[in-house]
Computed example of a mutant assay.
Amino acid sequence: MTLAIEVPDRTDEAIADVEEQLSMLFSRIRTVWKESAEQVHPDLPPAGYKLISAITRLGTTNAHVLADMFDMDKSVVSRQIRMLEELGLVETRPDETDGRVRVLVATRNALDAVQGVRDRNQQRLRDVLAGHPEAELRSFASLLRSLGDA
Rank of each mutant, 00 (worst) to 15 (best):
S142D: 14
G48Q: 05
H64V: 10
L51P: 01
A135N: 04
L84H: 00
R108Y: 12
V65D: 08
E96L: 04
N62M: 04
V90M: 06
M24Y: 02
V101T: 15
D68S: 00
I55F: 06
P133A: 11
D43R: 15
T61L: 08
L143V: 14
T56L: 01
E13K: 06
Q123E: 14
T61I: 08
L25F: 11
R120L: 15
L89Q: 00
E6K: 08
R145D: 15
E96F: 03
A37T: 02
T61A: 00
E38K: 15
T92E: 05
R30V: 10
T97N: 08
T56Y: 09
T107F: 00
G131M: 03
T2Q: 02
R10F: 03
F70V: 02
L66Q: 07
V105R: 04
M72T: 00
L89D: 04
P133T: 12
A135M: 05
L129G: 02
R108D: 15
V114E: 11
L58C: 08
I81A: 09
Q123V: 14
Q123C: 10
R138G: 03
E19P: 09
F26V: 05
A63V: 05
L104I: 02
Q80K: 09
D98E: 05
A106W: 12
D17V: 01
D12Y: 03
V7E: 13
T11R: 08
V117Y: 01
E86F: 09
T60N: 10
M69D: 10
D17A: 11
V105T: 09
Q115F: 14
A130E: 01
D119C: 12
D95V: 08
L3S: 03
N62Q: 03
L104H: 04
E134R: 09
T107R: 00
R102V: 14
A47P: 02
R102M: 12
R10T: 01
L104A: 00
S36G: 11
P94N: 07
L51H: 00
Q122V: 14
G88T: 04
L22N: 07
H41Y: 11
P133Y: 00
E96V: 06
T56D: 13
M24A: 11
G116N: 14
R79W: 05
S78C: 07
V18Q: 06
E35T: 08
N109S: 11
A141Y: 09
F26L: 04
L137D: 09
T61Y: 04
A67F: 11
E86D: 14
G99F: 05
F26E: 10
S75H: 07
G59V: 12
S78M: 10
L143A: 15
I15P: 11
A130C: 02
K50S: 04
R118P: 10
I29C: 10
S36P: 14
E85W: 06
S75D: 08
S146N: 15
D127R: 05
L125I: 13
V40M: 05
A47V: 03
L44G: 00
V18W: 07
D119I: 15
Q39A: 15
L144P: 13
D98L: 04
A141W: 07
E85N: 12
L22D: 03
R57M: 11
L87F: 12
S139W: 06
A14S: 09
E19M: 14
E35M: 10
L84E: 01
I15D: 14
T60C: 07
G116D: 14
D119T: 15
M83L: 06
E134Q: 03
G148N: 11
V128R: 01
W33K: 06
E96S: 06
S75F: 02
E6R: 07
A14W: 08
I55S: 00
T92V: 08
V40T: 07
